[in-house]
Nucleic acid binder design. Structure first.
Lengths: 148, 148
DNA sequence: AGCCAATGTTGGCCTAACCAACGATAGCGC
DNA sequence: GCGCTATCGTTGGTTAGGCCAACATTGGCT
């Protein structure tokens, strides 16, 4: 039993920013592990989901919608295109742009990821009742939207 | 700032892990900015606060209490000792250990950081009522303790 | 035509979080 | 006392996420 020899100090334990960060660490670890089962990372899921929901779009538009930096979109689209999950085609109407489309394989992969991710959310939120989960989601949503 | 041409997809917007991560990003940005006003980072605050609350301790013990990796404790203690805020002295009773002590200057700095940090928490939680803040803190605490 | 904005892309930066390995030391069982 | 194991500080990584700057190409506006 080599458990820590005591709790973290009060000042740290109750600090909302620190609690948020700790929860994010946990959530990210669980989610990353889940996605890794399908060889994916968070950016991959975000892009697949966005293209699937809104249809083909340029990389810049995807970045704007997901909050992912343009340069990081490039790398993630590279990965996904290399796996045949997305397709990158030049836009004939605007030769600056690439049109990103999801392939049938991409939809299948997305369904897998949705399933894995749902399980991950459940593991993350395990100690909370459905009502608690809704409350948490609501509070966090208000926070992020306020600072948007 | 960016000019999003629409909201992120439903699947991403309501994903608790993603909301948590987004909130953590915001919180960390605000906190980092606040601490930077005193030339400090998060690890610095955590160590100062821990030594102040529990008294002198070895670096390994500090790491266990704060959740900071031993190797990262080394670097942070280096920083703080160089500024005269902590003192690193060999433990005469166990020559493997260093005893870390907070100096008067360290206490002063800690008080400054406490003040800056309180303002940061308030900015972070701005959209939430006192009751909401308590609820959020409670929910997050339950999450992190469950996964501890 | 001329200027400004947007796009894809490359390349880089910084930090947090983590891990492996090392020599030195301590502690324990025997 | 001896040997094994654990612990400590430290060095030196790695990974990924979130950024920013710059560039050439292209388009839109006037």
């Amino acid at each position: 039993m080599n458990t820590p020899e005591g709790p973290p100090p009060e000042r740290l334990r109750t600090l909302p920013s620190r609690l948020t960060n700790g929860a994010a660490l946990i959530a990210n670890r669980i989610v990353d592990q889940a996605l890794a089962q399908a060889g994916a990372r968070r950016y991959h899921y975000a892009l697949l989901a966005t293209v699937e929901e809104y249809g083909p779009a340029s990389q810049a538009a995807l970045g704007r919608r997901t909050g992912i930096d343009r340069s990081d979109v490039v790398a993630a689209v590279n990965d996904l295109a290399a796996q045949g999950l997305l397709e990158r085609a030049p836009d004939p109407d605007d030769r600056r742009r690439n049109i990103i489309t999801i392939t049938p394989a991409g939809r299948k992969r997305l369904a897998d990821l949705d399933r894995l991710l749902a399980a991950a959310q459940d593991a993350y939120l395990a100690p909370l009742s459905p009502a608690d989960r809704r409350t948490l989601t609501d509070l966090l949503t208000r926070l992020v939207e306020h600072h948007a």
